[in-house]
Design a protein around this nucleic acid. Structure first.
Lengths: 248, 248
DNA sequence: AAGTGGTCTAGACCACGGC
DNA sequence: CCGTGGTCTAGACCACTTC
Protein backbone atom coordinates (compact mmCIF):
# COMPACT_ATOMS: atom_id res chain seq x y z
CA UNK A 1 0.00 0.00 0.00
CA UNK A 2 1.10 3.59 -0.54
CA UNK A 3 2.34 5.46 2.51
CA UNK A 4 -0.21 8.09 3.14
CA UNK A 5 -0.25 8.53 6.84
CA UNK A 6 0.76 11.74 8.48
CA UNK A 7 0.37 13.71 5.29
CA UNK A 8 -3.29 14.43 5.10
CA UNK A 9 -5.08 12.41 7.74
CA UNK A 10 -6.65 14.95 10.06
CA UNK A 11 -7.69 12.34 12.59
CA UNK A 12 -4.33 11.03 13.71
CA UNK A 13 -3.20 11.81 17.19
CA UNK A 14 0.23 10.39 17.81
CA UNK A 15 1.27 11.30 21.31
CA UNK A 16 -2.36 12.17 21.96
CA UNK A 17 -5.37 10.42 23.36
CA UNK A 18 -6.39 7.49 21.20
CA UNK A 19 -9.52 8.08 19.16
CA UNK A 20 -11.40 5.20 20.74
CA UNK A 21 -10.85 6.68 24.19
CA UNK A 22 -12.15 10.04 23.03
CA UNK A 23 -15.27 8.34 21.73
CA UNK A 24 -15.66 6.53 25.04
CA UNK A 25 -15.33 9.83 26.85
CA UNK A 26 -18.07 11.52 24.84
CA UNK A 27 -20.44 8.65 25.58
CA UNK A 28 -19.50 8.53 29.26
CA UNK A 29 -20.13 12.23 29.52
CA UNK A 30 -23.64 11.91 28.15
CA UNK A 31 -24.36 9.07 30.54
CA UNK A 32 -23.00 10.92 33.53
CA UNK A 33 -24.81 14.19 32.93
CA UNK A 34 -28.08 12.38 32.43
CA UNK A 35 -28.58 12.90 28.70
CA UNK A 36 -28.50 9.12 28.37
CA UNK A 37 -30.32 7.04 30.93
CA UNK A 38 -30.12 3.30 31.58
CA UNK A 39 -31.83 1.42 28.77
CA UNK A 40 -31.35 4.21 26.25
CA UNK A 41 -29.72 3.30 22.97
CA UNK A 42 -26.21 4.59 22.38
CA UNK A 43 -25.06 5.63 18.91
CA UNK A 44 -24.40 2.54 16.82
CA UNK A 45 -20.93 1.59 15.61
CA UNK A 46 -21.66 2.99 12.18
CA UNK A 47 -23.04 6.25 13.56
CA UNK A 48 -20.03 6.72 15.82
CA UNK A 49 -17.69 6.00 12.93
CA UNK A 50 -19.32 8.72 10.86
CA UNK A 51 -19.59 11.25 13.66
CA UNK A 52 -15.99 10.89 14.78
CA UNK A 53 -14.56 10.27 11.33
CA UNK A 54 -12.98 6.98 12.26
CA UNK A 55 -13.21 3.50 10.87
CA UNK A 56 -15.78 1.01 12.02
CA UNK A 57 -13.19 -1.01 13.92
CA UNK A 58 -12.20 2.00 15.97
CA UNK A 59 -15.77 2.90 16.83
CA UNK A 60 -16.29 -0.74 17.66
CA UNK A 61 -13.26 -0.73 19.94
CA UNK A 62 -14.77 2.14 21.90
CA UNK A 63 -18.03 0.27 22.44
CA UNK A 64 -16.51 -3.08 23.35
CA UNK A 65 -14.23 -1.37 25.84
CA UNK A 66 -17.22 0.41 27.38
CA UNK A 67 -19.05 -2.89 27.59
CA UNK A 68 -16.13 -4.52 29.37
CA UNK A 69 -16.23 -1.69 31.88
CA UNK A 70 -19.90 -2.41 32.45
CA UNK A 71 -21.11 0.96 31.19
CA UNK A 72 -23.16 -0.38 28.26
CA UNK A 73 -24.68 -3.64 27.12
CA UNK A 74 -24.52 -4.76 23.52
CA UNK A 75 -27.18 -6.88 21.87
CA UNK A 76 -26.55 -8.28 18.41
CA UNK A 77 -29.15 -7.17 15.97
CA UNK A 78 -30.59 -4.67 18.41
CA UNK A 79 -28.01 -2.12 19.43
CA UNK A 80 -25.92 -0.83 22.30
CA UNK A 81 -27.71 0.35 25.42
CA UNK A 82 -26.75 2.16 28.58
CA UNK A 83 -26.34 -0.39 31.37
CA UNK A 84 -28.12 -0.03 34.70
CA UNK A 85 -26.03 1.98 37.16
CA UNK A 86 -23.18 -0.05 38.53
CA UNK A 87 -23.74 -1.40 41.95
CA UNK A 88 -20.35 -1.38 43.52
CA UNK A 89 -20.30 -4.92 44.68
CA UNK A 90 -17.05 -6.27 45.96
CA UNK A 91 -15.71 -2.81 46.17
CA UNK A 92 -13.12 -2.20 48.77
CA UNK A 93 -14.10 1.01 50.50
CA UNK A 94 -12.83 2.50 53.69
CA UNK A 95 -15.10 3.02 56.64
CA UNK A 96 -14.99 6.74 56.03
CA UNK A 97 -16.09 6.29 52.44
CA UNK A 98 -18.88 3.93 53.38
CA UNK A 99 -20.26 6.35 55.89
CA UNK A 100 -20.03 9.20 53.44
CA UNK A 101 -21.99 7.24 50.86
CA UNK A 102 -24.78 6.84 53.40
CA UNK A 103 -24.44 10.47 54.35
CA UNK A 104 -23.59 9.60 57.92
CA UNK A 105 -20.93 11.40 59.84
CA UNK A 106 -18.08 9.03 60.43
CA UNK A 107 -15.82 9.40 63.36
CA UNK A 108 -13.20 7.32 65.06
CA UNK A 109 -11.78 6.99 68.50
CA UNK A 110 -8.23 5.75 68.62
CA UNK A 111 -8.00 3.08 71.31
CA UNK A 112 -4.48 1.89 70.70
CA UNK A 113 -1.54 3.42 68.90
CA UNK A 114 1.65 1.53 69.57
CA UNK A 115 4.46 -0.45 68.06
CA UNK A 116 4.48 -4.18 68.68
CA UNK A 117 6.90 -6.88 67.61
CA UNK A 118 5.30 -10.06 68.85
CA UNK A 119 2.38 -10.42 66.48
CA UNK A 120 3.91 -13.26 64.56
CA UNK A 121 0.75 -14.40 62.85
CA UNK A 122 0.00 -10.94 61.54
CA UNK A 123 3.57 -10.53 60.34
CA UNK A 124 3.28 -13.82 58.51
CA UNK A 125 0.09 -12.67 56.81
CA UNK A 126 1.93 -9.58 55.62
CA UNK A 127 4.81 -11.74 54.39
CA UNK A 128 7.20 -10.16 56.88
CA UNK A 129 9.70 -11.65 59.31
CA UNK A 130 8.02 -12.87 62.49
CA UNK A 131 9.47 -10.21 64.76
CA UNK A 132 9.00 -7.25 62.42
CA UNK A 133 8.00 -4.14 64.28
CA UNK A 134 4.38 -3.36 63.48
CA UNK A 135 2.32 -0.30 64.16
CA UNK A 136 -0.83 -1.46 65.86
CA UNK A 137 -3.73 0.89 65.44
CA UNK A 138 -6.97 0.04 67.14
CA UNK A 139 -9.96 2.25 66.46
CA UNK A 140 -13.54 2.34 67.60
CA UNK A 141 -15.65 3.32 64.62
CA UNK A 142 -18.72 5.43 65.19
CA UNK A 143 -21.55 6.36 62.90
CA UNK A 144 -23.39 9.34 64.27
CA UNK A 145 -22.24 8.72 67.85
CA UNK A 146 -23.23 5.09 67.72
CA UNK A 147 -20.50 2.49 68.01
CA UNK A 148 -20.37 0.40 64.94
CA UNK A 149 -17.16 -1.55 64.74
CA UNK A 150 -13.72 -2.07 66.16
CA UNK A 151 -10.96 -2.18 63.62
CA UNK A 152 -7.39 -3.12 64.42
CA UNK A 153 -4.86 -2.30 61.72
CA UNK A 154 -1.29 -3.52 61.57
CA UNK A 155 1.26 -1.74 59.37
CA UNK A 156 5.02 -2.17 59.04
CA UNK A 157 6.26 0.39 61.60
CA UNK A 158 9.37 1.31 59.71
CA UNK A 159 7.60 2.09 56.49
CA UNK A 160 5.01 4.28 58.12
CA UNK A 161 7.10 6.14 60.63
CA UNK A 162 5.64 9.61 60.97
CA UNK A 163 2.06 8.45 61.06
CA UNK A 164 0.54 10.36 63.92
CA UNK A 165 -2.25 9.49 66.23
CA UNK A 166 -4.06 12.74 65.73
CA UNK A 167 -4.18 12.54 61.96
CA UNK A 168 -6.29 9.44 62.26
CA UNK A 169 -9.20 10.80 64.21
CA UNK A 170 -10.75 12.45 61.20
CA UNK A 171 -8.74 11.43 58.16
CA UNK A 172 -9.26 8.18 56.37
CA UNK A 173 -6.33 5.83 56.74
CA UNK A 174 -6.67 4.94 53.07
CA UNK A 175 -6.38 8.54 51.98
CA UNK A 176 -3.34 9.09 54.22
CA UNK A 177 -1.65 6.04 52.74
CA UNK A 178 -2.41 7.25 49.26
CA UNK A 179 -1.53 10.90 49.69
CA UNK A 180 1.36 10.83 52.18
CA UNK A 181 2.97 7.50 51.45
CA UNK A 182 2.13 7.14 47.77
CA UNK A 183 0.60 3.73 48.31
CA UNK A 184 -2.24 2.93 45.95
CA UNK A 185 -4.48 0.26 47.39
CA UNK A 186 -5.49 -2.39 44.89
CA UNK A 187 -7.48 -5.12 46.60
CA UNK A 188 -7.98 -7.04 49.82
CA UNK A 189 -8.34 -10.70 50.57
CA UNK A 190 -10.85 -11.11 53.31
CA UNK A 191 -11.85 -13.92 55.58
CA UNK A 192 -15.22 -13.70 57.21
CA UNK A 193 -16.85 -15.50 60.05
CA UNK A 194 -18.91 -14.90 63.14
CA UNK A 195 -17.72 -14.59 66.69
CA UNK A 196 -19.11 -13.76 70.09
CA UNK A 197 -18.38 -10.40 71.67
CA UNK A 198 -15.77 -10.65 74.42
CA UNK A 199 -16.58 -8.57 77.51
CA UNK A 200 -14.26 -5.69 76.65
CA UNK A 201 -15.44 -5.65 73.05
CA UNK A 202 -19.07 -5.79 74.07
CA UNK A 203 -18.66 -2.84 76.35
CA UNK A 204 -16.96 -0.74 73.69
CA UNK A 205 -19.58 -1.56 71.10
CA UNK A 206 -22.38 -1.17 73.62
CA UNK A 207 -23.83 -4.59 72.97
CA UNK A 208 -24.57 -7.51 75.24
CA UNK A 209 -21.76 -9.87 76.09
CA UNK A 210 -21.51 -12.83 73.68
CA UNK A 211 -23.61 -11.08 71.08
CA UNK A 212 -22.71 -12.35 67.60
CA UNK A 213 -20.37 -10.10 65.67
CA UNK A 214 -19.24 -10.27 62.09
CA UNK A 215 -15.49 -10.74 62.06
CA UNK A 216 -13.50 -9.79 58.98
CA UNK A 217 -9.78 -10.31 58.62
CA UNK A 218 -8.29 -8.43 55.70
CA UNK A 219 -4.92 -8.49 54.05
CA UNK A 220 -4.83 -5.33 51.98
CA UNK A 221 -2.53 -5.23 48.97
CA UNK A 222 -1.05 -2.26 47.13
CA UNK A 223 -1.01 -1.90 43.38
CA UNK A 224 2.58 -3.15 43.49
CA UNK A 225 1.26 -6.47 44.74
CA UNK A 226 2.77 -6.02 48.19
CA UNK A 227 0.77 -6.74 51.34
CA UNK A 228 0.43 -3.26 52.81
CA UNK A 229 -1.59 -3.79 55.97
CA UNK A 230 -3.60 -6.27 57.94
CA UNK A 231 -6.95 -5.36 59.43
CA UNK A 232 -9.04 -7.25 61.94
CA UNK A 233 -12.57 -5.91 62.07
CA UNK A 234 -15.39 -6.72 64.45
CA UNK A 235 -18.72 -5.39 63.25
CA UNK A 236 -21.99 -5.07 65.05
CA UNK A 237 -24.15 -7.45 63.15
CA UNK A 238 -27.27 -5.43 63.85
CA UNK A 239 -25.74 -2.41 62.15
CA UNK A 240 -23.74 -3.89 59.37
CA UNK A 241 -24.17 -6.47 56.65
CA UNK A 242 -21.57 -7.12 54.05
CA UNK A 243 -22.62 -7.28 50.43
CA UNK A 244 -20.73 -9.47 48.04
CA UNK A 245 -21.34 -10.67 44.54
CA UNK A 246 -19.90 -14.02 43.62
CA UNK A 247 -19.67 -15.50 40.15
CA UNK A 248 -19.95 -19.01 38.83
CA UNK B 1 -13.43 -2.86 -3.13
CA UNK B 2 -13.99 -5.90 -5.25
CA UNK B 3 -16.14 -8.65 -3.77
CA UNK B 4 -13.81 -11.47 -3.23
CA UNK B 5 -15.07 -13.26 -0.19
CA UNK B 6 -16.46 -16.75 -0.36
CA UNK B 7 -14.82 -17.45 -3.66
CA UNK B 8 -11.31 -18.37 -2.78
CA UNK B 9 -10.73 -17.63 0.87
CA UNK B 10 -9.95 -20.98 2.48
CA UNK B 11 -10.07 -19.62 5.99
CA UNK B 12 -13.71 -18.58 6.28
CA UNK B 13 -15.95 -20.45 8.64
CA UNK B 14 -19.44 -19.13 8.38
CA UNK B 15 -21.66 -21.09 10.72
CA UNK B 16 -18.50 -22.39 12.30
CA UNK B 17 -16.36 -21.48 15.24
CA UNK B 18 -14.79 -18.05 14.77
CA UNK B 19 -11.11 -18.12 13.96
CA UNK B 20 -10.14 -16.09 17.01
CA UNK B 21 -11.84 -18.63 19.26
CA UNK B 22 -9.98 -21.47 17.58
CA UNK B 23 -6.72 -19.64 18.19
CA UNK B 24 -7.70 -19.12 21.82
CA UNK B 25 -8.45 -22.82 22.12
CA UNK B 26 -5.06 -23.89 20.80
CA UNK B 27 -3.33 -21.63 23.29
CA UNK B 28 -5.58 -22.72 26.17
CA UNK B 29 -4.83 -26.32 25.36
CA UNK B 30 -1.11 -25.79 25.57
CA UNK B 31 -1.50 -24.01 28.88
CA UNK B 32 -3.74 -26.68 30.33
CA UNK B 33 -1.63 -29.64 29.35
CA UNK B 34 1.48 -28.01 30.75
CA UNK B 35 3.34 -27.25 27.52
CA UNK B 36 3.13 -23.61 28.53
CA UNK B 37 3.73 -22.65 32.13
CA UNK B 38 3.05 -19.35 33.92
CA UNK B 39 5.53 -16.76 32.77
CA UNK B 40 6.23 -18.47 29.45
CA UNK B 41 5.86 -16.37 26.34
CA UNK B 42 2.92 -17.14 24.08
CA UNK B 43 3.21 -16.81 20.29
CA UNK B 44 3.16 -13.16 19.32
CA UNK B 45 0.34 -11.60 17.34
CA UNK B 46 2.37 -11.80 14.16
CA UNK B 47 3.37 -15.40 14.74
CA UNK B 48 -0.22 -16.42 15.40
CA UNK B 49 -1.38 -14.60 12.31
CA UNK B 50 1.09 -16.52 10.16
CA UNK B 51 0.46 -19.88 11.82
CA UNK B 52 -3.31 -19.67 11.58
CA UNK B 53 -3.41 -17.81 8.28
CA UNK B 54 -5.42 -14.94 9.66
CA UNK B 55 -4.94 -11.21 9.73
CA UNK B 56 -3.15 -9.44 12.55
CA UNK B 57 -6.40 -8.03 13.92
CA UNK B 58 -7.85 -11.49 14.30
CA UNK B 59 -4.79 -12.90 16.04
CA UNK B 60 -4.87 -9.81 18.20
CA UNK B 61 -8.53 -10.40 19.05
CA UNK B 62 -7.67 -13.87 20.30
CA UNK B 63 -4.97 -12.54 22.62
CA UNK B 64 -6.95 -9.61 23.99
CA UNK B 65 -9.86 -11.93 24.72
CA UNK B 66 -7.55 -14.33 26.54
CA UNK B 67 -6.15 -11.44 28.52
CA UNK B 68 -9.62 -10.33 29.55
CA UNK B 69 -10.26 -13.86 30.77
CA UNK B 70 -7.13 -13.62 32.86
CA UNK B 71 -5.29 -16.41 31.07
CA UNK B 72 -2.42 -14.29 29.78
CA UNK B 73 -0.80 -10.96 30.48
CA UNK B 74 0.33 -8.67 27.70
CA UNK B 75 3.26 -6.29 27.98
CA UNK B 76 3.82 -3.74 25.29
CA UNK B 77 7.16 -4.15 23.66
CA UNK B 78 7.83 -7.40 25.44
CA UNK B 79 5.22 -9.97 24.51
CA UNK B 80 2.31 -12.02 25.79
CA UNK B 81 2.89 -14.32 28.72
CA UNK B 82 0.96 -17.04 30.48
CA UNK B 83 -0.63 -15.60 33.62
CA UNK B 84 -0.23 -17.21 37.04
CA UNK B 85 -2.98 -19.73 37.70
CA UNK B 86 -6.23 -18.05 38.55
CA UNK B 87 -7.16 -18.08 42.18
CA UNK B 88 -10.85 -18.52 42.22
CA UNK B 89 -11.78 -15.85 44.63
CA UNK B 90 -15.38 -14.82 44.77
CA UNK B 91 -16.36 -17.98 43.00
CA UNK B 92 -19.87 -19.15 43.54
CA UNK B 93 -19.64 -22.84 44.26
CA UNK B 94 -22.23 -25.21 45.58
CA UNK B 95 -21.80 -26.95 48.88
CA UNK B 96 -21.23 -30.20 47.04
CA UNK B 97 -18.46 -28.65 44.97
CA UNK B 98 -16.82 -27.06 47.99
CA UNK B 99 -16.72 -30.34 49.82
CA UNK B 100 -15.36 -32.14 46.78
CA UNK B 101 -12.55 -29.61 46.47
CA UNK B 102 -11.53 -30.41 50.04
CA UNK B 103 -11.99 -34.10 49.34
CA UNK B 104 -14.63 -34.44 52.01
CA UNK B 105 -17.72 -36.49 51.49
CA UNK B 106 -20.68 -34.17 51.31
CA UNK B 107 -24.10 -35.30 52.30
CA UNK B 108 -27.39 -33.65 53.00
CA UNK B 109 -30.42 -34.38 55.06
CA UNK B 110 -33.62 -32.89 53.73
CA UNK B 111 -35.45 -31.32 56.65
CA UNK B 112 -38.27 -29.61 54.77
CA UNK B 113 -39.65 -30.09 51.30
CA UNK B 114 -42.90 -28.24 50.83
CA UNK B 115 -44.69 -25.56 48.89
CA UNK B 116 -45.36 -22.30 50.66
CA UNK B 117 -47.13 -19.16 49.51
CA UNK B 118 -46.73 -16.78 52.41
CA UNK B 119 -43.06 -15.95 52.18
CA UNK B 120 -43.61 -12.47 50.88
CA UNK B 121 -40.16 -11.15 51.58
CA UNK B 122 -38.51 -14.00 49.76
CA UNK B 123 -40.88 -13.60 46.82
CA UNK B 124 -39.98 -9.93 46.67
CA UNK B 125 -36.28 -10.76 46.60
CA UNK B 126 -36.94 -13.04 43.64
CA UNK B 127 -38.94 -10.28 41.94
CA UNK B 128 -42.14 -12.36 42.12
CA UNK B 129 -45.66 -11.54 43.25
CA UNK B 130 -45.99 -11.67 47.03
CA UNK B 131 -48.15 -14.79 47.12
CA UNK B 132 -46.24 -16.78 44.50
CA UNK B 133 -46.06 -20.45 45.38
CA UNK B 134 -42.51 -21.27 46.37
CA UNK B 135 -40.83 -24.59 46.89
CA UNK B 136 -39.15 -24.43 50.27
CA UNK B 137 -36.24 -26.79 50.62
CA UNK B 138 -34.46 -26.93 53.92
CA UNK B 139 -31.37 -29.06 54.18
CA UNK B 140 -28.89 -29.92 56.88
CA UNK B 141 -25.47 -30.03 55.31
CA UNK B 142 -22.96 -32.51 56.62
CA UNK B 143 -19.27 -32.89 55.95
CA UNK B 144 -18.14 -36.34 56.95
CA UNK B 145 -21.04 -36.87 59.39
CA UNK B 146 -20.46 -33.54 61.04
CA UNK B 147 -23.21 -30.95 60.75
CA UNK B 148 -21.91 -27.91 59.01
CA UNK B 149 -24.71 -25.68 57.86
CA UNK B 150 -28.43 -25.33 57.38
CA UNK B 151 -29.45 -24.06 54.00
CA UNK B 152 -32.99 -23.09 53.11
CA UNK B 153 -33.67 -22.65 49.39
CA UNK B 154 -36.72 -21.08 47.86
CA UNK B 155 -37.58 -21.71 44.20
CA UNK B 156 -40.64 -20.77 42.15
CA UNK B 157 -42.78 -23.93 42.62
CA UNK B 158 -44.37 -23.81 39.22
CA UNK B 159 -41.10 -23.60 37.34
CA UNK B 160 -39.54 -26.47 39.21
CA UNK B 161 -42.44 -28.87 39.41
CA UNK B 162 -41.05 -32.35 39.22
CA UNK B 163 -38.15 -31.68 41.55
CA UNK B 164 -38.17 -34.62 43.92
CA UNK B 165 -37.09 -34.91 47.48
CA UNK B 166 -34.98 -37.97 46.90
CA UNK B 167 -32.94 -36.50 44.08
CA UNK B 168 -31.60 -33.92 46.49
CA UNK B 169 -30.01 -36.18 49.05
CA UNK B 170 -26.97 -36.83 46.95
CA UNK B 171 -27.21 -34.65 43.86
CA UNK B 172 -26.15 -31.05 43.85
CA UNK B 173 -29.05 -28.66 43.44
CA UNK B 174 -26.93 -26.60 41.07
CA UNK B 175 -26.28 -29.57 38.81
CA UNK B 176 -29.98 -30.53 38.80
CA UNK B 177 -30.93 -26.98 37.83
CA UNK B 178 -28.36 -26.99 35.07
CA UNK B 179 -28.99 -30.44 33.67
CA UNK B 180 -32.74 -30.93 34.16
CA UNK B 181 -34.04 -27.40 33.92
CA UNK B 182 -31.45 -25.91 31.61
CA UNK B 183 -30.73 -23.07 34.00
CA UNK B 184 -27.17 -21.81 33.92
CA UNK B 185 -26.27 -20.07 37.11
CA UNK B 186 -24.38 -16.84 36.61
CA UNK B 187 -23.82 -15.10 39.93
CA UNK B 188 -25.23 -14.46 43.37
CA UNK B 189 -25.67 -11.35 45.40
CA UNK B 190 -25.00 -12.17 49.00
CA UNK B 191 -25.61 -10.42 52.25
CA UNK B 192 -23.59 -11.54 55.21
CA UNK B 193 -23.89 -11.02 58.90
CA UNK B 194 -23.69 -12.87 62.17
CA UNK B 195 -26.54 -14.26 64.21
CA UNK B 196 -27.03 -16.36 67.30
CA UNK B 197 -28.14 -19.96 66.99
CA UNK B 198 -31.79 -20.42 67.88
CA UNK B 199 -32.49 -23.50 69.98
CA UNK B 200 -33.76 -25.65 67.10
CA UNK B 201 -30.88 -24.55 64.89
CA UNK B 202 -28.34 -25.16 67.61
CA UNK B 203 -29.59 -28.66 68.16
CA UNK B 204 -29.46 -29.51 64.47
CA UNK B 205 -25.95 -28.13 64.08
CA UNK B 206 -24.87 -29.66 67.38
CA UNK B 207 -23.62 -26.40 68.81
CA UNK B 208 -24.44 -24.52 71.98
CA UNK B 209 -27.48 -22.33 72.00
CA UNK B 210 -26.75 -18.71 71.02
CA UNK B 211 -23.44 -19.65 69.49
CA UNK B 212 -22.54 -17.18 66.73
CA UNK B 213 -23.29 -18.37 63.23
CA UNK B 214 -22.39 -16.84 59.91
CA UNK B 215 -25.61 -16.01 58.11
CA UNK B 216 -25.60 -15.63 54.34
CA UNK B 217 -28.61 -14.65 52.31
CA UNK B 218 -28.17 -15.22 48.59
CA UNK B 219 -30.19 -14.22 45.59
CA UNK B 220 -28.88 -16.45 42.82
CA UNK B 221 -29.28 -15.27 39.24
CA UNK B 222 -29.29 -17.24 36.02
CA UNK B 223 -27.34 -16.29 32.94
CA UNK B 224 -30.55 -14.77 31.63
CA UNK B 225 -30.42 -12.26 34.44
CA UNK B 226 -33.45 -13.69 36.19
CA UNK B 227 -33.46 -14.32 39.93
CA UNK B 228 -33.59 -18.11 40.04
CA UNK B 229 -33.57 -18.92 43.73
CA UNK B 230 -33.12 -17.50 47.18
CA UNK B 231 -30.98 -19.22 49.75
CA UNK B 232 -30.69 -18.55 53.47
CA UNK B 233 -27.65 -20.22 54.92
CA UNK B 234 -26.55 -20.57 58.52
CA UNK B 235 -22.98 -21.74 58.84
CA UNK B 236 -21.10 -23.01 61.85
CA UNK B 237 -18.50 -20.34 62.29
CA UNK B 238 -16.04 -22.80 63.77
CA UNK B 239 -16.13 -24.88 60.59
CA UNK B 240 -16.52 -22.30 57.89
CA UNK B 241 -15.01 -19.02 56.89
CA UNK B 242 -15.89 -17.22 53.73
CA UNK B 243 -13.11 -15.93 51.51
CA UNK B 244 -13.69 -12.88 49.40
CA UNK B 245 -11.48 -10.61 47.38
CA UNK B 246 -12.59 -7.03 47.06
CA UNK B 247 -11.15 -4.41 44.75
CA UNK B 248 -10.61 -0.73 45.09
C1' DA C 1 17.88 -2.66 15.55
C1' DA C 2 14.55 -6.01 15.91
C1' DG C 3 10.50 -7.43 17.78
C1' DT C 4 6.31 -6.60 20.46
C1' DG C 5 1.88 -4.86 21.60
C1' DG C 6 -1.37 -0.55 20.71
C1' DT C 7 -3.91 2.05 17.49
C1' DC C 8 -6.13 2.54 13.10
C1' DT C 9 -8.03 2.20 8.10
C1' DA C 10 -11.68 1.21 4.62
C1' DG C 11 -13.75 -1.73 3.51
C1' DA C 12 -16.19 -6.94 3.51
C1' DC C 13 -19.72 -10.74 4.79
C1' DC C 14 -22.48 -13.01 8.39
C1' DA C 15 -26.18 -13.74 11.95
C1' DC C 16 -29.54 -11.76 14.46
C1' DG C 17 -33.48 -8.52 16.00
C1' DG C 18 -37.44 -5.86 15.33
C1' DC C 19 -40.73 -3.87 12.35
C1' DC D 1 -36.42 -5.60 5.06
C1' DC D 2 -33.04 -2.82 7.22
C1' DG D 3 -30.11 -1.79 10.90
C1' DT D 4 -27.33 -3.84 14.49
C1' DG D 5 -23.47 -6.09 16.43
C1' DG D 6 -19.79 -10.01 15.34
C1' DT D 7 -16.10 -11.53 12.58
C1' DC D 8 -12.40 -10.59 9.43
C1' DT D 9 -8.80 -8.64 5.93
C1' DA D 10 -4.19 -6.76 4.63
C1' DG D 11 -2.07 -3.81 5.44
C1' DA D 12 -0.16 0.93 8.08
C1' DC D 13 2.39 3.77 11.80
C1' DC D 14 3.51 4.47 16.73
C1' DA D 15 5.50 3.52 21.36
C1' DC D 16 7.81 0.56 23.91
C1' DT D 17 11.19 -3.26 25.56
C1' DT D 18 14.96 -5.99 24.99
C1' DC D 19 19.29 -6.95 23.18
Amino acid sequence: MIRMIGEFMPNRHPNGIPAYQKIQATIMERIENGQLKPGDAVDSERELAKIHQVSLMTARHALTALEREGMVQRRRGAGTFVAPPKIHFNKLTSFTEQMASRSLSACSKVLTFEVVDNEHEVAARLALAANTRLLKLERLRLAGDEPFAIETCYLPAEEFAGLTRSSLVRGSLFSILESTYGIQIAYADEEMDATAAAPATASLLKVARDQPLLRIRQVIYSTKGKAALYVLGLYRSDRHTLLVRRFR
